[in-house]
Every structure is written in structure tokens, then in C-alpha cells.
């Protein structure tokens, strides 16, 4: 139709390109950008809101408090990117903490305690992975089961009573090097390690492919079972380490340690921009997500707001962050 005059349609105002297309694109492509922006916002607000916030003491406290959640979230992120979910991490924290304490006390060798904690975590991960890939039980159900079994085991072996843990291995959880909490140093090292694993190794890239389209991955020659078992094992190992650190920090291993941690960990992962549907997410984002959660916790302490509000707010932040993200990508999703 070349004849515009007789055309039955009136011209409409031409749509102009979006106001900040570059920013929008950034938000769409990097899901963690939203959360990074929130992190900066909370940081700035707190700097003005409380004179104590920017003190070295407080900042290192925040760093220490967020380390365990962040470390365990690194493993959880791999599991979720691979299309799974690991609900057992909280219980693994509990069992590995008491295993570390009991093994160290029984053998008088803290090194054995460290090995015991990691072994409990790694083993739980292998069991999870095997049940999921060989017995083909869905990850949610499998890890819901191990969540219960592992917690029960921690209570059973200790008869419900806390175990003393105050040897040199506790330094990992409670110590400081040049005032920096050792936990936080570990977090930085592990985050770098997992990040390199995820972006620079074949096994890391396979995690993304398996989570994005497992069937295509299998047909392309990937060993999907191996990849799935691997991510659950890594998640278990890191949860085991988390248990060790918590026990060290408290000089005491309570069988109920880590109760409910799986929710904080999953929230940090989701907040960090990892898609629950798998295949998408970055390790950097997860660290940012965990940092935001830690900062919010600190904010409530500094501003003297009731802890109940803290729980409510963290829930809301997760919903808002994920909601804002879906809103940004809504147009292209369907």
C-alpha cells in the first residue's frame, strides 16, 4: 500500500524509545544489578542514619555475620543454577558442627574435627545427588527428607545437648587476622574460587547448560547425572564448612545450629539474581544478595528496630527484588 492518503488508518504518535534504554537493558541482562543498587542504597542510608555504621568494628561484625550464609549460598547457587534446590543445608550445618566437636574432642585432634565436618557435608551431598539422579526422586522431596534425617541424626548422636568446641580449629570461625574475621577471608577466597569454577571451567559451564535444558544437555553429550551429583556435593561440603565456622564462632556446637538457615541461604541466592528455574545466575550476584541481607540485619540492630520487623522486611525485600526483576523482563518472557 503506497498511497498514504486513502489509507483507512490514522497515523498514531510514534513511540519514542524508552527513557533510559541503556539502564533498562542493564537491569534486564544483569539480574543482580537491581540488588546491587539496593545494596548501595542501604549502605548510603545507613551511613547517614547511624554514626556507628561506618566504624571498622561494626563493618567487620557485619562481614562476620554474613559470611556463613554467603558461603553456604555459593553452593546453593550452583544447585539452583543446575535446576535443583538443596533444603538440607541448615541441617547439615547442625550435624557437621556437632560432628566436628565430637570428633575433635574424642581424638583430641582438631584436624580430625575439620575433616569430620567436611565429610558429613560432602557425604550428605553425595547421598542427595545419588537419590536425585539414580533413584530419580525430585530434589525438593529428596532434600526435604535429608533435612529431617540429618537434623534427627545430630540430635540423636548428641542426645540433644551442645558440645564444647574450643580448640584451634575454632579459630576459623571466631578468629581474626589483622582485625578481619577469618570467616570473611574464607568467604572472599571461596567466592573467587567458585566464581572461577563457574565461568572458567567446563564443569562450571555444564552446570548452566544442565539447568537451562537438561534434555538438550544430555543429547549434546554432557553427563547430566555427574553434574547434578557434583553440585549437591559442593553444596554439602560448603554447608559442612558453614557448620564448622558457626561452631567455632560460638565455641560450642549445638545440634540445633543452622535451624532454618536453608531459607536465608535460598533467599540470598534468589536475591542475587539466580533464577529458580535454573540456567541463569552469577556467583557475584549471590555474594551481593547475601551482603544485602547482612546489611539489612545490621540496620535493624543499629536503628534499634524490633527484630520482628527484620523478619518481615527481609521477606518483603526478596519479593520486591524478584518482582522488580520480572517486571523488567516481562515483555520478552512470554
Amino acid at each position: 500500500m503506497s498511497d498514504g492518503e486513502s489509507h483507512p488508518i490514522l497515523r498514531r504518535a510514534e513511540a519514542t524509545p524508552g527513557l533510559l534504554p541503556a539502564l533498562r537493558q542493564l537491569l534486564r541482562e544483569r539480574r543482580e544489578a537491581t540488588v546491587a543498587a539496593m545494596l548501595v542504597l542501604v549502605f548510603v542510608l545507613l551511613s547517614f542514619g547511624s554514626p556507628f555504621f561506618l566504624t571498622e568494628r561494626n563493618l567487620f561484625n557485619v562481614a562476620r555475620q554474613l559470611s556463613v550464609v554467603a558461603i553456604v549460598a555459593l553452593g546453593q547457587a550452583l544447585v539452583i543454577i543446575a535446576g535443583g534446590i538443596d533444603l538440607s543445608v541448615g541441617s547439615v550445618i547442625g550435624l557437621s558442627a556437632v560432628a566436628a566437636a565430637m570428633a575433635a574432642n574424642a581424638t583430641n585432634s582438631p584436624a580430625v574435627g575439620i575433616v569430620a565436618a567436611l565429610a558429613v557435608g560432602g557425604l550428605t551431598g553425595v547421598v542427595n545427588g545419588t537419590l536425585i539422579t539414580r533413584a530419580r526422586i525430585n530434589p525438593f522431596i529428596t532434600t526435604l527428607g535429608t533435612l529431617s534425617v540429618v537434623r534427627g541424626a545430630a540430635l540423636l548422636v548428641t542426645n540433644g545437648s551442645p558440645q564444647r568446641f574450643d580448640n584451634w580449629a575454632a579459630f576459623l570461625g571466631g578468629g581474626r587476622i589483622a582485625n578481619v574475621p577469618v570467616q570473611f577471608i574464607l568467604l572472599v577466597l571461596l567466592a573467587a574460587l567458585i566464581w572461577i569454577f563457574a565461568v572458567r571451567t567446563r564443569w562450571g559451564r555444564d552446570v548452566y547448560a544442565v539447568g537451562d535444558n537438561a534434555r538438550a544437555a544430555r543429547l549434546a553429550g554432557l553427563d547430566v547425572k555427574f553434574t547434578r551429583t557434583m553440585v549437591f556435593t559442593i553444596s554439602g561440603l560448603l554447608a559442612g564448612l558453614g557448620g564448622l565456622l558457626l561452631a567455632g564462632m560460638l565455641s560450642n556446637a549445638n545440634p540445633n545450629l543452622g535451624l532454618g538457615y536453608e531459607l536465608d541461604v535460598i533467599a540470598a541466592v534468589i536475591l542475587g539474581g539466580v533464577a529458580l528455574t535454573g540456567g541463569r545466575g552469577s556467583i557475584g550476584g549471590v555474594v551481593i544478595g547475601a551482603a544485602l541481607m547482612g546489611l539489612l540485619r545490621n540496620a535493624f540492630v543499629l536503628l534499634n528496630v524490633s527484630g520482628y520487623w527484620q523478619t518481615i522486611t527481609i521477606g518483603l525485600v526478596v519479593i520486591v527484588a524478584v518482582g522488580a526483576d520480572s517486571f523488567n523482563r516481562k515483555a520478552e518472557e512470554d
Binding site: T201, R202, A209, D212, A275
Partner: peptide, 22 residues
Amino acid sequence: APNLSVHENMLLSWRRTAPGWI
């Protein structure tokens, strides 16, 4: 693998025989 890049999709199988370090 819809959410992965063209690069990743094309190399999915090639990587089986490449070194694990990318």
C-alpha cells in the same frame, strides 16, 4: 539451551574433548 549464549550453545559438545580449563 535457550538462556545461554550462541557461543555456549555451539561449544557444548566441543568442550567434551577440550581441556577442562576454558
